[in-house]
Design a protein around this nucleic acid. Structure first.
Length: 480
RNA sequence: CGGGGCGUGGCGCAGUUCGGUAGCGCACCUGCUUUGGGAGCAGGGGGUCGCCGGUUCAAAUCCGGCCGCCCCGACCA
C-alpha cells in the first residue's frame, strides 16, 4: 500500500527509518550520530514541550538556563557520575586558537554545574525548596546512534531541585514521575509502566532512579522518562548546604528528572503503522487537514468558499488546521501524503459533498475507504473537537490493548529465553536478583530488567534467576 | 571495537563477473489534458560513479590504500 515504507512486520528498524524520511521528521547530519530535526518533526517536539512546560510550572518549577560548557573537574567530583559518563563525553581542549588551561566538557547532563550554582544560592532553609528546570541540548558520544532514540546531541529538559530533607525530595521525585506518566498517557496516548530502576540500570550518581517504560511496535521497551532521587551525593561534593532552623548546617537532598526528543521516537514507534506515522491529536502539528476536490473552476470556487469558512471556524476554536489546495495533485495523492504524516483527521470536500450537505471524513487511526464517515455541514465545526477527542482516546485504548496483548508472565529462565525471541514483549517475573544476576540475564537473553513497577501484585514466588522466594515482581524486556 | 551489508543525479536501484567514456524508476521543470485513494502524454534540466594512487590507448568496471554510511552486538535519555 504505502510506497517507500517497509512493512513493519518485516523489518521494524527499516520501517522506522522509512517513516522518519517519508514524514519528513528528520534527516541525517554530516556528523555521525547527529540529526537535523525538520520542521514537521520539530513541531511535534514543540507540542511535547509546551504541554510539559505547563505542567512543570503548575507544579511550581521555574525555567533557567545553564551553560553548555562545564569544567572537566566538575564532572570528576562525584565518583559514580564520572564512571558513568566518562566514556561518552565530548571534551573541548582548544578555544580562541589556544589550548585551554582546563578542558571543558560539553554537558552530558547538568547536575554538576547546577550544584555549583546551588551551593552559592542556597544558604538558609528559607531558600528551599529550589525548583528549577531547563530546556537544553546535551551531548553524549554514544556508540550506536538511532534517530530520535539515541543521537549524539539531543534536546531535552532537565529538572533540578533541592530540598530540606529526604522525604520532600523523594516526594518530588515521584511527583515528577507522575507528571511524565500522565503526559505519556493523556497527551502522547502511550501507556507506560512507572517503576524503580535496579542497581544496574540506575542513573550514575543517583540513590534511586525511577522510569516510565513504554512498549514499542515490535515489543521492545523504551525508557521514556526518568526521575531520580539523588540524595546528598552531589551536595556532599559541591558543598550544597543550608542552615536549618536550629542554626545547623545540613546538606540538601536533591532530585533530577528529564525527558528528551526520544519521546518523538516513542510516538513514532508506539503508534505508527504500515502507512506511516499516526499522531495523537494533542501532539499533531496539523490536527485537521482539509482536501478540497473540484473538477473545474466553477466547482472550485464553490468548494473553496465552504472550505474557507470551515478553516476559519476551526482556527477560531484553536484547532490546528491546514487546507491542502495545491493544484495539479490528485486527491488520492493528497490522502496518502497526509496519512504518511499521521494527521489525525482529514476532511474531504467536493461538489458531491456540498450537494448532500456534508463533508467526508477519515480518521487516521481508522484509515481506508471503508471507514470513512460523513459530518453534516450544519454542525461541522462544533463537532470537530469531540471527534479529535475520540481519536485521542481510541489511540490510547489501542496502544493499551497492543501492549497488554504482548505482556506475559513467566517463571522459568529457560522458557523466558525462548519466549523473548519468539514473542518479544513485557515479561512479568519474580525477582530477587543482584547486579551480577542482571548481567547474567542480559548475557543470556539480551533482555534487561526494565523496572520494578510501583504497583506490585500480591503474593510471592521464586526469583527467575536465583530461585529465592520473593514478593517482588519486575518487568523484563528487550530495550532500545 | 567485533560480525554482516553498502557507497553510481534529490531518493531507490541497474551496470562491475568479461574495461570502450553512464542508464532505469520515482522526484523536479515546461506545456496540454486531468482531479472522490499515490493521473496521462509530450518535451526538458540535473551525476568529475565515496576519496587517493596504480595498471591501461582507454577505468564506475581491474589492483592497492583510505574514508564514510547502514544493520546486528557491547554502551545509553
Amino acid at each position: 500500500m504505502a510506497k517507500n515504507i517497509t512493512n513493519p512486520e518485516k523489518d521494524f528498524a527499516r520501517w522506522y527509518q522509512d517513516v522518519i524520511r517519508e514524514a519528513e521528521l528528520a534527516d541525517s547530519a554530516p556528523v555521525r550520530g547527529c540529526m537535523i530535526i525538520r520542521p514537521y518533526g520539530y513541531s511535534i517536539w514543540e507540542n511535547i514541550k509546551a504541554s510539559l512546560d505547563a505542567s512543570f510550572k503548575e507544579t511550581g518549577h521555574k525555567n533557567a538556563y545553564f551553560p553548555l560548557f562545564i569544567p572537566e573537574s566538575f564532572i570528576k567530583k562525584e565518583a559514580k557520575h564520572v564512571e558513568g559518563f566518562a566514556p561518552e563525553l565530548a571534551i573541548v581542549t582548544h578555544g580562541g586558537g589556544k589550548k585551554l588551561e582546563e578542558p571543558l566538557v560539553v554537558r552530558p547532563t547538568s547536575e554538576t554545574i547546577i550544584n555549583h550554582m546551588f551551593s552559592k544560592w542556597i544558604n538558609s532553609y528559607r531558600d528551599l525548596p529550589m525548583l528549577l528546570n531547563q530546556w537544553a541540548n546535551v551531548v553524549r558520544w554514544e556508540m550506536r546512534p538511532r534517530a530520535f532514540l539515541r543521537t549524539t546531541e539531543f534536546l531535552w529538559q532537565e529538572g533540578h531541585t533541592a530540598h530540606a530533607n529526604e522525604e520532600e525530595a523523594r516526594e518530588e521525585t515521584l511527583r515528577m514521575l507522575k507528571v511524565y506518566a500522565d503526559f505519556a498517557e493523556n497527551v502522547a496516548a502511550i501507556p507506560v509502566i512507572p517503576g524503580r530502576k535496579t542497581e544496574q540500570e540506575k542513573f550514575a550518581g543517583a540513590v534511586d532512579s525511577y522510569t516510565i517504560e513504554a512498549m514499542m511496535g515490535n515489543g521492545w521497551a523504551l525508557q521514556s522518562g526518568t526521575s531520580h532521587y539523588l540524595g546528598t551525593n552531589f551536595a556532599r561534593v559541591f558543598d550544597t548546604m543550608y542552615l536549618d532552623s536550629n542554626n545547623e548546617q545540613q546538606f540538601v537532598h536533591q532530585t533530577s528528572w528529564g525527558v528528551s526528543t526520544r519521546l518523538v521516537g516513542a510516538v513514532i514507534m508506539a503508534h505508527g503503522d504500515e502507512n506511516g506515522l499516526r499522531l495523537p491529536p494533542k501532539l499533531a502539528p496539523v490536527q485537521v487537514v482539509i482536501v478540497p476536490i473540484a473538477r473545474d473552476d466553477s466547482a472550485r470556487t464553490e468548494v473553496l468558499m465552504v472550505v474557507d469558512s470551515i478553516n476559519e471556524g476551526l482556527k477560531k476554536m484553536g484547532i490546528r488546521v491546514e487546507v491542502d489546495n495545491r493544484e495539479g495533485m490528485s486527491p488520492g495523492f493528497k490522502f496518502n501524503y497526509w496519512e504518511v504524516r499521521g494527521v489525525p483527521l482529514r476532511l474531504e470536500i467536493g461538489p458531491r459533498d456540498l450537494k448532500e450537505g456534508h463533508v467526508t471524513a477519515s480518521a487516521r487511526n481508522r484509515p481506508g475507504r471503508e471507514d470513512k464517515f460523513t459530518i453534516s455541514l450544519d454542525s461541522l465545526v462544533e463537532n470537530i473537537p469531540e471527534i479529535l477527542e475520540k481519536i485521542q482516546n481510541e489511540m490510547l485504548d489501542e496502544a493499551i490493548r497492543k501492549r497488554d496483548s504482548r505482556t506475559y508472565s513467566v517463571e522459568d529462565l529457560g522458557d523466558f529465553r525462548e519466549a523473548i525471541v519468539s514473542d518479544p514483549g513485557f515479561y512479568n517475573v519474580w525477582w530477587d536478583g543482584v547486579a551480577e544476576d542482571e548481567v547474567r540475564l542480559q548475557k543470556e537473553t539480551k533482555a534487561t530488567v526494565r523496572c520494578i513497577p510501583l504497583e506490585q501484585q500480591e503474593g510471592s514466588g521464586k526469583c527467575i534467576m536465583t530461585g529465592r522466594e520473593t514478593s517482588t515482581r519486575v518487568v523484563l524486556a528487550r530495550a532500545y
